[in-house]
Design a protein around this nucleic acid. Structure first.
Lengths: 199, 199
DNA sequence: ACCTGAACACCGTTCAAGT
DNA sequence: ACCTGAACACCGTTCAAGT
């Protein structure tokens, strides 16, 4: 006796939730459309009513991941200004990645095409905008040189993204949250110092 | 009539080469053990004589990727010292990633376990050592503060790795090699400046 | 040692059909 | 509209068997 199937169009979200749970347990490569359908108590072809194909569901998972990331960053940086704000965003970025490694791999591992998956793409851009606005704050506070805001934000993003990826792959010895915070802060302070040197 | 099958134990390398070619064409998720066997003109169970399973072959692919990366970095940095050396390593790292995106994804996307795949792990560590030795060179030239060599190298690695990953995902607007080199140099100069600020 | 073919339990996707 | 079951062409892996 299966539990009652989903109705009223909430199947779409149920499938996304099931997918996120499955990915968390089995990793991105253990993710299977048929198993997702099983978890939603629905036939294995039902997902095709809501997603073009497997990749389309993965894009929806990525979109939710970007939304969650934006929320986590906004929360961490609330009220903070200038460099403090930038650092908190960085710590939140890496913390989110380490806490949801499989989800993060989906977000950045699926070669997101803006044409094919515009919603996921936009959600990703919105997460990046948090960094852009923090850089702007730093520039207004004269702790970063004016101009080239986008370029500065991209450098900061690269640093923080690299830390996140290497941490997920266990290639950095960051075992505790203290170590993680310390490393991110050291790295971002260094970068900020160098950027303010040569305007 | 298939071409003559491989003999004399060169099948292992033939499978690795076929795998790299297949990954280049179809991406990491299009990679299939059976298709690799087909390309090597061998039955689909023959690979199991040389690799425990699909992941074991992927680890061998990753190992070769790390070896290639080390060679490319060594070549790019030949004769250069201090900051110039560090920058050239970074440019070579990102260039390699952008030129072999699928291979790079395998190297860093497969959650390499040092116990299960020691050879691939060692090859990865050797690539990282190039950064460590360049940081040491910088310290001896007094362009970076002494001590904490490993930590400084890890920060540099994170930056360069983040640029590589974002560039592969087309999330940075680096269309030409000039733009790529310029961005890596800007980023690494900034980081170096900041690191030398606060010893 | 090295390779094969059959077999098993899975996939993603399509399609005609049901409510 | 939304969901289903059968069908197709694939997988990864195991196993008995052949040279």
């Amino acid at each position: 006796m299966p539990a009652k199937p989903y109705h009223h169009g909430n199947l779409r979200q149920a499938l996304i939730d099931a997918a996120i749970g499955l990915i968390q347990e089995s990793g991105p490569e253990g993710f299977t459309l048929r198993e997702v359908a099983r978890r939603a108590h629905v036939s294995h072809t039902a997902p095709y009513r809501h997603f073009r194909d497997k990749n389309d569901l993965l894009a929806a998972v990525a979109e939710q991941g970007f939304t969650d990331l934006s929320r986590a960053m906004a929360e961490a940086a609330r009220g903070a200004k200038a460099l403090d704000r930038l650092q908190r965003l960085g710590v939140a970025y890496v913390t989110s990645a380490v806490e949801h490694p499989a989800h993060f791999r989906v977000m950045f591992g699926m070669q997101l095409d803006p044409k094919a998956h515009p919603a996921a793409w936009v959600a990703g851009q919105e997460a990046f905008q948090a960094l852009v606005s923090a850089v702007t704050t730093c520039q207004e506070a004269n702790v970063l040189p004016k101009g080239h805001t986008l370029t500065l934000a991209r450098v900061a993003w690269s640093l923080v993204h690299g830390i996140a990826q290497l941490a997920i792959g266990r290639l950095l010895p960051l075992r505790t949250r203290r170590e993680l915070t310390g490393f991110v802060n050291l790295a971002s302070r260094s970068l900020a110092g160098g950027l303010s040197d040569k305007p």
